[in-house]
Simulated assay, not measured.
Amino acid sequence: MSKAAKTIRKIAGSDPIEAAIVLGSGLSAIGDLIAEKIAIPFSELKGFPGGGVSGHGRDLLVGNLAGKRVAVLTGREHYYEHGNPAAMRPALKAMAELGASTLMLTNSAGSLDPAFAPGDLMLISDHINYAGMNPLIGEPTDRRFVNMVGCYDPDLRGKSRAVAERLGIKLGEGVYLWYSGPSFETVAEIQMAIRLGANAVGMSTAPEVILGRFLGLRVWACSSVTNMGAGLSNENISHEHTKIMAKQGAEKLARLIPALVEEL
């Protein structure tokens, strides 16, 4: 067991967690839903994110959500921070060691599709690794050859659609394109992404999905749409704008995620 996992068990107890939840830009308030929570700063956990992006939290929360024991990472480390696509591997490995069978990922994303307006949620059905980097580069075993068909768990997606319909939350599905960042995409790059079949674009998530499947976890991911892609509207795209608009999606995720966790 990793040092981080041992530290978490020492502080939060040895009861296994059922799911690990990673929160994206502007979505850290979802951690307020956790009951009987124990907060552990990332700085106390070896290999966990350094917390270098505004709008992201810097704590691991362990507690109860919808009757299930979960661990919530209130922030993540992105490839664009240090050029390491495997930056989240130690944290996700610790989650698996603590018993998690499901990995739930959220992010803020730009829409490439009129069907997804700012404030909407997009359930991710697949992704395009446009950044080209892979967190399993350097892995010495044959486990690195991960089958990515159905990497966004079909069963969890089906449950999400049913839950969203019951709660009256608009929830479409689409393909997410991972762009390395940190600069936003050009108008030409957005047009390219549309032609490749993507519905939304963002700077995270895909590496964690690959790592999650490598670790044997079921993976679910949902984007909070914060803006239209470059050239598709008159919005002034910025990180501050992303954080402000993410609050609309966070309100919907705060209803959707607990109901989905209850179904696990």
Rank of each mutant, 00 (worst) to 15 (best):
A12G: 07
G13S: 10
S14Q: 10
D15P: 09
D15L: 12
P16W: 05
E18Y: 03
E18R: 09
E18D: 11
A19K: 04
A19I: 01
A20E: 08
A20P: 03
A20N: 07
I21F: 04
G24P: 00
S25D: 05
L27W: 09
I34C: 02
A35G: 06
E36F: 02
E36K: 01
I38D: 03
A39D: 02
F42S: 12
L45Q: 10
G52F: 00
V53Y: 00
G57R: 00
G57A: 11
R58L: 00
L60K: 07
G63D: 12
N64M: 09
N64Y: 00
A66C: 02
K68R: 15
R69C: 05
R69Q: 02
V70C: 10
A71G: 08
L73F: 12
T74L: 04
G75P: 07
H78I: 10
Y79N: 14
Y80R: 10
E81W: 14
H82W: 13
P85F: 04
A86H: 04
A86Y: 08
P90R: 02
P90W: 07
A91G: 07
K93S: 07
A94S: 15
M95P: 00
M95L: 14
M95Y: 03
E97T: 13
L98Y: 06
S101C: 08
M104L: 11
L105W: 11
L105I: 14
L105F: 13
L105M: 12
T106V: 07
T106D: 03
A109V: 03
G110K: 10
S111F: 08
D113R: 03
F116M: 14
A117Q: 15
P118G: 00
G119L: 11
D120L: 03
M122W: 00
I124A: 09
S125H: 08
H127G: 12
N129V: 14
G132A: 08
G132E: 08
M133G: 04
N134V: 03
P135N: 12
P135L: 11
L136M: 11
L136F: 03
G138Y: 09
P140I: 05
P140S: 09
T141K: 09
T141S: 15
R143F: 13
R143S: 14
F145A: 08
F145H: 15
F145Y: 10
V146L: 10
N147R: 12
N147A: 14
G150F: 05
C151V: 01
C151Q: 01
